[in-house]
Design a protein around this nucleic acid. Structure first.
Lengths: 131, 131
DNA sequence: TGAAGTGTATTAAGAGAATTAATACACTTA
DNA sequence: TAAGTGTATTAATTCTCTTAATACACTTCA
């Protein structure tokens, strides 16, 4: 199903997450289809089941899988991943806001930056439609 | 001059950076005034001089201090730090905004998140003053 | 009902990075 | 030249992260 790269310095579970996420987004793994069991995939890759468990847990957290205890893990419907991305975006925003506010920046200044980004993106969209 | 918190799980040099940065931004340490020597501050805090050295190096990198070898470290003029810090914050915000907007999030949703972060920080500030 | 398959929780071992310390060097000033 | 300053190098230590070992709990189905 996937192949690990031991020259890659990143942790194994991260590689597993990345590759499975890719397979799901590309449609190679269809929504509601059953994933290999934690133990089966661990066996196939010759690694510990907990490592797969961790990868599956992360994929579930970001909405790519859903779990039925005792039955297995399944690919989530497309709507789930998109809401997961929304969550990630919110966290990114919250982090930036926290930094800005604790540095003393006020709400108006932050909104001014937001508006400037919106205008910049509008212009770029207009230019794109020209080409 | 500053006080370390050994219950704080962050590294010592990070605490030193944070507290000195705060003293500079608040005006408690005036531009061009001499900072305590690496050894003196280390002695005062009962930690290794290299830890202070590391903190000073980071503060110099972000424009809060300047160094004259053999003479000491000095507080940088306001222009040096304000520009660098503000710029970094603006870039972080702009990046997050760009991601959010291109994913289809609208202005109102973004401002709602900003408000929730502001409220959260107010609460935390209130709790800190209790202890 | 019980065995086999599934996910889950807990704990510990191992590796690696990050932090801190020890020490020696180099520059400036008086 | 001595005392005070920052700097560089290396080593010891601490800590976090990753992975593994193991036991537990739930579902299904023969």
């Amino acid at each position: 199903m996937i192949l690990l790269d031991y020259r890659d310095k990143r942790p194994l579970y991260e590689q597993v997450v990345e590759k499975l996420e890719h397979l799901i987004v590309c449609g190679a793994l269809k929504p509601d289809s059953k994933m290999p069991s934690v133990r089966a995939l661990a066996m196939e890759l010759s690694i510990n089941p907990n490592t797969i468990q961790r990868a599956y847990a992360l994929l579930e957290q970001s909405g790519f899988l859903y779990t039925i205890v005792g039955r297995g893990n399944f690919v989530a419907p497309e709507e789930s991943w998109q809401s997961g991305k929304q969550l990630a975006l919110k966290e990114e925003l919250a982090e930036a806001f926290e930094h800005a506010l604790s540095a003393g920046m006020d709400k108006e200044s932050i909104i001014a930056i937001l508006d400037s980004v919106r205008q910049k993106m509008k212009k770029e969209a207009a230019n794109d439609s020209d080409t």
